[in-house]
Simulated scan of single mutants.
Amino acid sequence: MGDLGRVPVGIIGASGYGGVQLVRLLVDHPRLELAYLGGESSAGQAFSDLYPHLGHQVQQAIEPIDLNRIADRCQVVFLSLPNGLAFKMAPTLLEKGCKVLDLSADYRFFDLATYTAWYGGDRTDKDIAETAVYGLPELYRDRIARSQLVGCPGCYPTASLLALSPLLKQGLIVPETAIIDAKSGTSGGGRQAKTNLLLAEADNSLSAYNVARHRHTPEIEQICSDLAGHEVLVQFTPHLIPMVRGILATVYATLRDPGLVREDLLTIYTAFYRSCPWVKILPSGVYPQTKWAYGTNLCYLGVEVDPRTDRVIVMSAIDNLMKGQAGQAIQCLNLMMGWDETLGLPQLAFYP
């Protein structure tokens, strides 16, 4: 099956921003073949009708969602769907032998009670959900490599957790003091017509939203608790910033040892991420910019210590559609296939 030994891959929900990023990455990937594009509202349309700029490379039409047909044609399926749809499809695909990577929230939680509390819905797939692995390779690389079902992280949690993980794992901070202040570009809102995302509304403006109740909060807390070894609550505030791509998360926390200085923490971060090709620790006094990650799967981390307040400040920059979504999903698939996790993923930003 597949072309020249390439692995055939399908995308369900190919018409959104996550879907089109996946298409771009799959077409360029040396070991993967784009075998199926599926959707409901756009079924029957040529993909190039939705995205004319890809017409010279992608001649496929978007097909109706038929799980049996998809499983016959694909070894791997990406579910790039709104929350609450993937869990109705994944069990069938897994049963038929497909590897499944879900880009929604459906398989991100260790405990389904957390999912239903924040997202609602009746889950009847408890046994399947328990086999899912949280798709943050920098923390769960070995589990991902052995998994058939990966719940790919949200974009805010990816940026936030990469900033926080060394601090929590090494017990360097008082966990309850962690505050995450994050800004995201408008593509994080998806490809729908929303008043607050119109150019006239969003441009020249900066605003917080879903304060104290954003759905990514329990996802961040779950992994923080796993790292710390006990339940951890964090304060997370997202903001909409008038640009298309990128997230900058600035994380504050109180140090347990006020004697730690910036160089100590840079050494700790460099060691923690030494085998993580997609995380770049910036030199002393250099702070990340979202543009540096634009179009890549990279996460840039800058670290600072304020000796007056005994706080550590970590800044994390990613492209929300890449390391925050489609790029990270491909990174996970590379691990699941036993390949190098950098395979087929862009490492150089569009700049300026």
Results as ranks from 00 to 15, higher is better:
W278R: 14
W278G: 09
I281F: 05
I281A: 08
L282G: 03
L282K: 09
P283T: 10
P283R: 10
P283E: 09
P283G: 11
S284R: 05
S284Y: 08
S284D: 13
S284V: 02
G285W: 08
V286S: 10
Y287T: 01
P288H: 03
P288K: 04
T290Y: 00
T290C: 09
T290F: 00
T290L: 01
K291G: 15
W292I: 04
W292V: 01
W292M: 12
W292R: 07
A293T: 15
A293P: 10
Y294I: 07
G295D: 03
G295W: 00
T296F: 13
T296V: 08
T296E: 12
T296G: 12
T296M: 14
N297V: 15
N297Q: 07
L298P: 07
L298N: 12
L298T: 09
L298E: 09
C299E: 06
C299R: 01
C299Q: 03
Y300D: 03
L301N: 02
V303C: 06
V303S: 09
V303D: 10
E304D: 12
E304P: 01
V305F: 07
D306Q: 01
D306E: 11
D306G: 02
D306P: 05
R308H: 09
R308D: 11
T309C: 09
T309P: 07
D310Q: 12
V312R: 00
I313L: 13
V314Q: 05
V314K: 00
V314L: 05
S316A: 11
